[in-house]
Design a protein around this nucleic acid. Structure first.
Lengths: 149, 149
DNA sequence: CGGAATAAGGACTATTTAATCCGTTTTTAT
DNA sequence: ATAAAAACGGATTAAATAGTCCTTATTCCG
C-alpha cells in the first residue's frame, strides 16, 4: 500500500466534497455517511486537512467543512503531503537506510524514474480533473461494501 | 512504503546471499549480522522463503540456507510475491474497495500504467542483475546505521 | 551413542497505525 | 440567555505489523 489509510480516506472525502460543491459547508458526519469512511477517524483526518489549509471549517449549527480553495488548485500531491508527508519521494524501495544518488541501491535508478512518474501524476491531477468522473452513481459503485483493510 | 519491512529485509538478505555465493550454506545468524537485519525476524522471513522455494535450508552443524536456484532465476517479483503477495498489482491506489477496469476510480488508468511499470521492473530484475553492484563496500555504505522504520 | 549446531515453529511482546470516545469550545437560532 | 449543533482536541482502545524468545526437531561430528 503506497498511501496510508488516512490518506486514502482524505482523497475520497475531498473527491466527494468536490463533486458536491454548493458553496455550503458539509458536516463531517454527513461526509462520513456518504463515503462510508469511519466518522470519528474522518474527523481526525479533517482536522489535519484544516490545519494544512486544504479545508476550511466552521463550528456550530450550519457549520462543517469545505474546500479551502478552488478544486483546480488542490492537487493529489497537496493531500498526500498533508496526511502522509513526502517520504514516498525519497525513501528507498528496498529499505536501504543510506540509499541515495551517490550510493544507490541496485534498483535506485529504475525506481527513481517510476517515483518521478508517480509524483508527477499526483502533482498534475487536481480535484477539478475528476469533476466529471465522480458522479453519485459511480461513487456508489466504487464502494458497494465496506472499506477493506 | 510500497513493500513491508519483512519484504525489504528478504530482498536485502537475498542480495547478500547472491553476492556471496560459494555453494555453501550460510547461517541465518551470519546473514543477519552482515546485513544488520534483526536476527530473529530474519529467521521468520527465511522460513517463509524456504517454504516458497526461494531458499533451501539444511539443519545441524554446517547447516544454513542458500538460494534454491540460480540467481538469474530469482526475480524481485518472486520475492515480493513470497512475502507480501501480489496485492500491489490489484489494489486501488485511492483505496476504493470496488475499483476495477469496469468501474474505475479517477486515477485508475494513470495508476494502472505505473503499476504495470513497477510490476515489470520487479519481474524483469533478477538477483543476478545486481551481482556486480553489491560489493561489500557498497553494502556497507548502503547501511552505515541501523534500519530506520 | 552423546553433544553441539542449526533451522523450524509456536507463543509471546512491542510498536505503529487505525479507529473510537468523550469532554470542551464555538457558533447559531430561538 | 439558553439550548443545540457542530468542530476541536486529548485520551483511550483495537488491530495490524514488527520483532523476540523459547522449545523442539534434525543433523553432524566425535
Amino acid at each position: 500500500m503506497l498511501l496510508s489509510a488516512g490518506c486514502e480516506y482524505a482523497i475520497q472525502a475531498l473527491l466527494y466534497l468536490e463533486s458536491n460543491e454548493q458553496d455550503e459547508l458539509k458536516t463531517v458526519v454527513s461526509i462520513a455517511k456518504e463515503t462510508s469512511i469511519p466518522p470519528s477517524f474522518l474527523a481526525k483526518i479533517v482536522q489535519r486537512l484544516v490545519a494544512e489549509d486544504v479545508l476550511v471549517s466552521g463550528k456550530g449549527p450550519g457549520g462543517g467543512v469545505a474546500l479551502a480553495r478552488p478544486a483546480a488548485e488542490i492537487t493529489l500531491l497537496d493531500i498526500v503531503q498533508a496526511i502522509d508527508g513526502l517520504g514516498f519521494k525519497s525513501q528507498c524501495v528496498l529499505g536501504f537506510p543510506d540509499c541515495n544518488d551517490k550510493v544507490p541501491c541496485p534498483v535506485h535508478s529504475y525506481w527513481g524514474e517510476l517515483r518521478e512518474d508517480i509524483a508527477y501524476m499526483f502533482a498534475a491531477k487536481s480535484l477539478k480533473d475528476f469533476a466529471s468522473e465522480i458522479t453519485p452513481a459511480v461513487r456508489r459503485r466504487l464502494r458497494t461494501g465496506r472499506n477493506k483493510r
